[in-house]
Design a protein around this nucleic acid. Sequence first.
DNA 1: CCGAACGTTTAA
DNA 2: TTAAACGTTCGG
Length: 744
Amino acid sequence: MALSLSGDDEEYDSESEQQRAANRPKPKMGTSSAVKLPSNRSSSGARRRRTRCRKCEACLRTECGECHFCKDMKKFGGPGRMKQSCIMRQCIAPVLPHTAVCVVCAEAGKEDTLEEEEDKFNFMLMECSICNEIVHPNCLKVSDAQGVVNDELPNCWECPKCNHAGKSGKVLKQKRGPGFKYASNLPGSLLREQKSMKEEGDASSAAKRRPDREETPRYRPEESLRQPPLLSPSTLPRPRPEDKLRKKRKLFDDEEEEDLSLRKKEKPDDQYFSKILLQIKTEEEDEDTYEEEDGEGREPHFRAGVERKGRFGDADDEGDEKDSKNELLNPCIRTPVGDSDQSHCSSPQAGPSSEGGSETQEKGPRPKARRKRRLPNRELSRELSKALNQEIQKTEDCLANENRQPLKVEPESENEEPKRLFRNGNELGDQRSHLKTKEMNGTPWELRHFYPSQITPLGFNRSTPTNRPVPPRSPPKCVQMERHVIRPPPISPPPDRLPLKDGKTHAIQREVWMKIFHYLTHQELCVCMRVCKTWNRWCCDKRLWMRIDLNRCTSVTPLMLSGIIRRQPVSLDLSWTNISKKQLSWLINRLPGLRVLKLSGCSWAAVSALCTSSCPLLRTLDVQWVEGLKDAQMRDLLSPPTDNRPGQLDNRCKLRNVEDLRLAGLDITDTSLRLISRQMPLLSRLDLSYCNHINDQSVNLLTAAGTTTRDSLTEINLSGNSSVSHTQIRTLEFFSTLTHFKII
DNA sequence: CCGAACGTTTAA
DNA sequence: TTAAACGTTCGG
């Protein structure tokens, strides 16, 4: 909701203006602010600056010391010019400053003094996202209208006045406050690419779409199912259904519309918050509605479900499982193809926030919260994929919510659940908005080639070097996209016990459940996430998502990326995906604990993100078959950060801690090996299979006296290298540390 | 357009 | 008063 950072170009002017106004800090009275504050049209004052909640996980964290902003800080030896908070510490639920008071009664929020939820709400300060006024709902006397609570941001709503006046939700584009940064301001603006996709794909439908708040993004479950089946690793060829996809989208559009109209019919006026509140008093109830409400799916796109947890299988194991994974994955991936409305899609990211779109459209009479939304008779497949999407979306929600500060929510209920309900009727829209995320558009499927079956797993034979598979390209540049909200990883501890209907809690503690969950696949976890909110949160525990596998995921969406960030995996497999440089860069900057990164088959354009990002803890880097990765690129990859300004003292190799480097299928020569031996003192395993330019001399370099690799290497894979002689291999065997070889 | 810079705000 | 950092503007 919240910010419907819509990217609707049609209204670009007004939007941008409004947004600007919204973002502008409120000049203090009497203070001549250096910032000129464009008058905010009809809306009242400028938006109040928000501040950290100091309670969410992000706020409680210590600075990572590794991110861009940390490095700028004086305490970390930087110049201190940027004055930005650590990326990992960006508050999830920025609050109104303590000094905020109600414009009507001039008093601060009083919710703490009240018991009843309803009272709490009425006496807490609420900031209107449109007019920016801060009031106690109770101080307003507007009848016939009701506010729409923004569950994205604490103490934020569209006040009854604005809501009643039908003011555009566009204004919602305002920023959410501190902590909510948009990708556009950060290293990787994921969003852009998406939009373009959509635009490209839905150009036709765009015409008929209603300008603005029209409908929630459309959700097309089927899309996923229509995806061409992913190939198993052995038959790597990639699908390239671009054309089909478009047609399908069209189809979906129609269906969506149907859906929408259907929904509209169901939109009765809603009751006021209080009533809603009553409805959600118990978790039980919540859970009842949960599925439906969250129904549209929130996201984990990862192949959830797909990959087994590390301990159950080898990460490199891509066996049979994959196929089944794919089935699941696809739906997730494809999820949201909203079409027309992407604009509202606020957060591509994912999340929890649903955003804007919903907000926007929900003006006017709001649909009632539907407990059981009846889906039209559609194919089962659609239902299924929808369910998956819900799962995904829920997860996101869950994750997001974890960090949220309970406003006036009752103790045991999930933090924002209540809020969400306030704007009941919106749920659907909301969730849909999540789905809006589009798949990467323009992904050049056409560019993808089938890759030879031999190449994937190491050790396979490759017929000829030139047969290397063509990695998917990064999505084309896109047009202005909505901003992407970035949130830090979820905080951990959700409720320790499962609340029951009667107010008691289930006997089994969370940790016990967690042990059970550990035995489940990601796929199964997704199913569990749909059980109830508590399980939903539990199943998001990052311990259950140590390894996330998006291998061959044909469309990496922002939603997926944000889902990854929240789960903070230790191992991430993005091999053979079309991830773009920005996306990768964005990810890396937010995964400080990443140990394993697999990018085989990606384009150098994307992999080059590693040149500008730092992954200090990275231990395993897989860049096999990365097209365009040659000596020059290797140099860029291994050289210290280019930023040599004072304060940017890190002159060490960005990949200095890599122990396992996989370079199979690259056209690299001795030059790269020299660099590697110099820059990766901890390198233990090196895969040089199918590197045609690697020869006897190259091998000598690795074991030459004085090189660190001489002592650190324990395993080298030289299979598929015709230029490496057996005698050479034998000489390697003299090195005691080198215990494993693979040759031809 | 995007990242960097910095004035200003906020809390301590 | 100071440290932190939000949000706008600047500059490439």
